[in-house]
Design a protein around this nucleic acid. Sequence first.
DNA 1: CTCGACTTGAGAATGATGCTCATGAAGCGT
DNA 2: ACGCTTCATGAGCATCATTCTCAAGTCGAG
Lengths: 132, 132
Amino acid sequence: MQRMTRQRSAVTEVLADTDDFRSAQQLHETLRSRGHGIGLATVYRTLQSLADGGEVDVLRTTDGEAVYRRCARREHHHHLICRGCGATVEIEGPGVEAWAAQVGAAHGFEDIEHVVELWGTCARCAARAAHP
Amino acid sequence: MQRMTRQRSAVTEVLADTDDFRSAQQLHETLRSRGHGIGLATVYRTLQSLADGGEVDVLRTTDGEAVYRRCARREHHHHLICRGCGATVEIEGPGVEAWAAQVGAAHGFEDIEHVVELWGTCARCAARAAHP
DNA sequence: CTCGACTTGAGAATGATGCTCATGAAGCGT
DNA sequence: ACGCTTCATGAGCATCATTCTCAAGTCGAG
């Protein structure tokens, strides 16, 4: 079972407040700045369990760092993420599911999962880069 | 310029000998076992420069570990990778390029890149799992 | 309210990867 | 083939994200 602790609700609250993908460290920072005393290890543990329960989406930046986001849809979907600030748009991958399963099976692979994410620079970050 | 050293050619040779995605550590291991004296740092540096030059493909496992592969095609393409052993099949992503660029632009994002990879368990690893 | 079981957190441990700098070797020019 | 300049190497240390440890704290069922 999963207990509802002060720390756990603080994490879900912060996640609910942003639409961007954020790293565990960034979330921890935000939590501290809001006055919640919470340990980094707890943030990692909580994010892990939320991810296991499908309540948050996790993905890896090109640097290999894990970033988390509370998505609107619980069904599988994809993202367009800003490399600069983490701003995210949920997107559709038309026909991707079927294509992935079919290609996998055609090569004798089982338990197929697919990773389909778009990375770019959002308008705001592009503007910021233009005015240094 | 890029000098051709004993170590560098050893790395490219090992990469040429496998079709699987391999981590820097695994490649280092293989190199040592073949009798090449080579430092881990050199393996990392060499892989990095090969990747920068587009001679090897790099991607991240779900654990965030970087894995490398000498691909047949130099043009952009996608992969179906075995989670167990790294065995890889190069695949086509029909229409993905155009779709990615279009979706990105529609949301005001620039410099769009896309990550499209399929992960699964290859037939050999599935069989191995069945006979413990 | 009580108490056991789960959770927390500070700090240490781990693991991948990057950095340093003294030493080695590629390869250009001769 | 011979130097010589310059870039490459490697052993070990540094860093950074993430996980582990375990004593102390706190949910929440009864």
